[in-house]
Simulated scan of single mutants.
Amino acid sequence: EHIEGKKPPVGVLDITLYRDDLSSLSYQPIVHQTELPVNITGKTTIVLVDDVLYTGRTIRAALDAIIDMGRPKAIQLAVLVDRGHRELPIRADFVGKNVPTSSHEVVSVQLSTIDQAEKVVIREFRDEK
């Protein structure tokens, strides 16, 4: 907004039904509303923003959802944290911080608008099974 002099349109994308692990998540998944304020077909660039880039599967689902809604000329990816361990050939165009982690760790991004704190938390994953 500062550079262009106008506020870019911002939307929310629900990828629940595009996930490849949908059947293992829940018997009745909770689907939220997707809100795109503009038609994305022909848009010069769509910037997809996510908190943590890990395997790439969430981004793959988001790309499928975007393409179902229109065909922009380009899609770029911005992530706050890239933790590696990719399973798909996906890379971010913009990365806030690269954080090497083990596959036994969980990375959570907390934002003040939701969590009343701004921080990245890395904790050991405990399988409850």
Rank of each mutant, 00 (worst) to 15 (best):
V10K: 06
I114A: 02
R71W: 07
I40T: 09
L17F: 01
D51Y: 06
L111P: 01
V10G: 01
D50V: 01
L88K: 14
D68C: 09
D82Y: 13
D115I: 15
K73N: 01
R71Y: 12
K97Y: 14
T55M: 03
V47L: 13
S26E: 04
S24M: 14
D21I: 08
T16M: 07
P37W: 15
L17T: 02
R83T: 08
T45D: 10
D51K: 05
G11C: 04
T41N: 11
G70C: 01
V38I: 08
R19T: 01
L17M: 04
V121G: 02
R19D: 03
K6T: 05
E35L: 09
P37D: 12
H104I: 15
Y54R: 05
H85V: 05
F125L: 15
A92W: 14
I30T: 13
V79N: 03
L25Y: 08
T34Q: 02
N39M: 14
K6E: 11
R91W: 14
I75D: 00
Q116F: 02
V120C: 11
V81N: 03
D93P: 13
D51I: 01
I122P: 11
P8C: 07
I46D: 07
A117I: 00
G70A: 05
V49E: 01
T58S: 14
A65G: 07
L111G: 01
E105C: 00
V106Q: 06
D20F: 06
D14Y: 00
T58C: 15
